[in-house]
Design a protein around this nucleic acid. Structure first.
Lengths: 197, 197
DNA sequence: CCTACCGATCGGTAGG
DNA sequence: CCTACCGATCGGTAGG
């Protein structure tokens, strides 16, 4: 499938509907109706409903990965707290940049067929590993308290992902405020409460 | 609808399927098949598919509310940190006690029709308000850092709810370990990093 | 991008 | 709890 304007419109509209009603709760005709075309006409642009979900999920996964890569590159060699802070800020930026797509990525990837679902599962694990590695380092250096790394990374990552269920563009809290607050909360959660003594 | 054994079995099976595939992704026949009866036979026990979702969601909402009530009652008059700790522990307990139902409550309440959905939305707001109130108090007393209360309560509550997507009964981390870790993380996230000086 | 159409499945009812 | 059945809708194809 070539990347036409129409194709991009379809993905935008689908992201919005999948975000609101979920993948299974959205029909191909719902998407078509939002574009003022017939349901069957959609198939001139996409191979299947699932292919649209895949396009949204894969692209968004790439954004998260690229943002985390950039954060890691920018903070290489620095202390764990700074590295985690940038990972958190990168994640918040990707979510706020496009909540609908981020929401579909976070919530609807389970609706994919076996193979693509396993691909995403693997990439999510990889992504989580970045957080775990930084937390591990922080515990090793004494910057972070000796918490259970699985629980801590799950706590922080699900909090970050939870942003998709409450962030509203144009709301009182913009991306900058949320990034600051979330970076502070995540770091404070991990930081050893009695650092120097 | 009277509460028969069959009725309870239906809700248990439906919780499991809704947890795995979502409400919209689960058919009435899927539920019936898991019970070894015909799809139409389900209607001898339930009025509609949505009524089953409502039963699960409403009961689970009641559990969260009751657990928070008990936590609040047990810590009335105490310091904000202790009160928040017990709210966190209560939440973790309800999730781990029945992940499937908790997961359906957290993820699928949006699939309800307008009226029940608004009822749940209202009760979720009410529930969040308990967290906000304690956080507000903690900031007022100086026990907590002066974070944005909306961001902080959303961060913590979505982290708590995120447990439904990774908790596995019988896994390495049991309810006690998770409750300890999550209570620590939530309190540390809020605590003023330089309390006495 | 449309019309016309496909088989399959959806939630649900009637009547036992 | 079953059989038999309902209209509506599902994702998708053929052929223009």
């Amino acid at each position: 499938m070539v990347e036409t304007t129409r194709r991009r419109e379809i993905e935008a509209v689908a992201s919005s509907l999948f975000h609101e009603r979920g993948y299974a709760g959205t029909s191909v005709r719902d998407i078509a109706r939002a574009l003022d075309i017939q349901g069957a006409s959609l198939y001139a642009h996409v191979a299947s409903k699932e292919e649209v979900l895949w396009a949204i999920v894969d692209r968004t996964a790439i954004r998260f990965e690229a943002a985390a890569d950039a954060a890691a590159a920018a903070t290489a060699g620095r202390d764990p707290a700074s590295r985690l802070e940038q990972l958190v800020r990168a994640h918040v930026a990707v979510v706020t940049e496009d909540v609908q797509r981020a929401s579909v990525f976070v919530r609807e990837w389970r609706s994919l067929a076996r193979e693509p679902r396993m691909d995403i599962a693997r990439r999510r694990d990889e992504y989580e590993r970045r957080f775990r590695a930084v937390i591990d380092d922080g515990i090793a250096t004494g910057a972070f308290a000796a918490v259970d790394v699985t629980a801590a990374s799950a706590f922080i990552l699900t909090a970050l992902n939870g942003l998709v269920s409450w962030y509203r563009p144009g709301g009182r809290l913009g991306e900058a405020e949320i990034a600051d607050a979330y970076a502070h909360l995540a770091l404070a959660a991990l930081r050893d409460s009695v650092p120097e003594r």
